[in-house]
């Protein structure tokens, strides 16, 4: 049963990650949602041209919806993340032409740690001068907690 579930997750992950990201996708501060779910797949994509590859997650929410989540450049997020982990995400919801539900993450909670990735208007915190690495960790547990 466990093997079957794992295979299903991988298949779903591959399907969702092969879906294209929206053409004019941007962080819409009026369209924020919170989702809770499980990581189905982890990938890295060069979605902003030649800039650093972005961490992309495929998530299945508790109501069984599938989300493709744009997190941050891979160098900015170095917390331990693995397929099957439970995750809470707040982000800006977009829908692309292919109908995939696309989310630009603002904040991620993973294993008791909270990572702030963008400010309230969607400004990416990795672009701040002296922004540092690993996101803004908050909450209890884990490395570099605040």
């Amino acid at each position: 049963m466990k093997k079957l579930s794992a295979c299903l997750f991988v298949v779903l992950g591959v399907i969702s990650l092969t879906a294209q990201s929206p053409v004019f996708h941007y962080f819409d501060q009026k369209n924020l949602i919170d989702i809770q779910g499980q990581v189905l797949a982890i990938d890295f994509e060069e979605i902003y041209g030649k800039k650093s590859a972005f961490l992309m997650l495929s998530i299945q929410s508790e109501d069984q919806r599938l989300f493709q989540v744009e997190v941050c450049p891979q160098w900015f997020f170095t917390a331990d993340i693995a397929v099957g982990m439970r995750i809470n995400i707040r982000g800006s919801l977009l829908e692309n032409s292919a109908g995939t539900t696309y989310l630009i993450a603002q904040e991620i909670s993973l294993q008791g740690e909270r990572f702030t990735l963008r400010d309230s208007k969607g400004f990416p915190l990795w672009s701040r001068s002296g922004g540092g690495r690993h996101g803004n960790r908050k909450g209890s547990g884990g490395r570099g907690k605040q």
């Binding site: 004019f24 996708h25 941007y26 962080f27 819409d28 501060q29 009026k30 979605i47 902003y48 800039k51 972005f54 744009e70 450049p73 800006s92 630009i104 963008r118 208007k121 969607g122 400004f123 990416p124 672009s127």
Partner: peptide, 17 residues
Amino acid sequence: SLLHAASKYEGYLPLDS
């Protein structure tokens, strides 16, 4: 509706309605 956009910072487009 958004017809065209470009941003120097990934996904940062703080447009008001």
